[in-house]
Computed example of a mutant assay.
Amino acid sequence: MAANPETRLTELGITLPVPAAAVANYVPSVLTGSLLFVSGQLPLENGKAAVVGRLGDNVTIEDGVRAARLCGLNLLAQARAACDGDLNRVKRLVRMTAFVAGTPDFFDQPKVVNGASDLMVEVLGEAGRHARVAVGVAALPLNVAVEIEAIFEIA
């Protein structure tokens, strides 16, 4: 039986944030056919960057995992908004692309991004298992530690 994302959020005690508005010349998401492309989401909490800096420097792996989870919450918030307020329209998470700001010798991007991947499985069940890319980068907007974009299949 497929997970009911709205019910799972309640069971997990998760309240999704208000979806962030675009801050440049792009839109938060694009729905084409049955695919929903959600623009890169930052680890925002209460509208502010919650985890800033670079892994391997001033951000621990635990803080990086938290940042990735926050990105995941913001991805779900954008998906819900694009689905007219109903996450139950999400058939599956197809792919996430994650960017982790780190020092040149930081190599644990996959551990960090598990913060978002684990959240997606918690909320979406089997439909939350996805293809994924975890890339190390030198810097991200607002000096955040993680940014993640996603592609969802929508009913």
Rank of each mutant, 00 (worst) to 15 (best):
D105F: 07
S39E: 14
R80D: 12
K111R: 13
Y26V: 12
A131Q: 14
V144F: 01
N74P: 02
D105S: 11
I148P: 03
S34Q: 14
Q78F: 00
Q78M: 09
R80T: 08
E45L: 13
L55K: 07
P43K: 01
A81W: 07
G64D: 08
G125C: 12
F106V: 06
G128S: 12
K48S: 10
A134C: 14
V133T: 15
M96Y: 05
R54F: 01
F107Q: 08
E62K: 14
A127N: 09
N58I: 09
L75V: 04
V94G: 01
L124R: 03
H130F: 08
G136F: 01
T32N: 13
V123E: 07
N58E: 12
G72P: 06
V52R: 13
V144H: 01
G125F: 11
L140S: 03
P43R: 02
A68E: 04
V94P: 00
L119W: 09
S117P: 00
R89K: 15
L87N: 11
L140P: 03
G128L: 09
T103M: 11
I148V: 14
A50H: 06
V121K: 10
A150F: 00
G102P: 11
G115R: 02
F152Q: 00
V100M: 13
V137P: 02
R66H: 11
F99N: 11
V123T: 09
V146G: 02
R80F: 04
L70V: 05
A145G: 01
K91D: 11
V146R: 01
V94Q: 06
S34L: 04
A77N: 05
N74H: 09
G33T: 06
E122I: 03
F107V: 10
A82S: 15
V121C: 08
E62L: 10
N46D: 14
A150D: 01
G115S: 08
L36N: 02
P104G: 13
G85W: 10
M120S: 06
N46M: 01
G53P: 08
A131M: 13
G53A: 04
A139D: 12
L55E: 06
R129F: 09
R129M: 12
V100F: 12
L75G: 05
G64W: 07
G72W: 03
F107I: 05
A50N: 05
D63I: 00
G125Y: 10
G125Q: 13
C83A: 15
A79I: 07
A139H: 06
V113P: 00
P110D: 13
V90F: 02
R89I: 05
R132A: 15
V38E: 01
N58G: 03
G72D: 02
V113Q: 02
L73F: 08
A77D: 04
A116H: 06
G33K: 06
Q109T: 14
T103H: 09
D105K: 07
A101Q: 10
V135F: 00
S39N: 10
V146E: 02
L119V: 11
F37C: 01
C71P: 07
L142S: 08
L42C: 00
A127G: 15
V59R: 04
F37H: 13
R92F: 02
L93W: 05
K48L: 14
V30A: 14
F107L: 11
R129A: 09
L44K: 02
C71Y: 06
A101P: 10
A138K: 08
D118E: 12
N114Q: 12
L75Y: 03
Q41S: 07
A67L: 07
P110Q: 10
N58W: 04
E147Q: 14
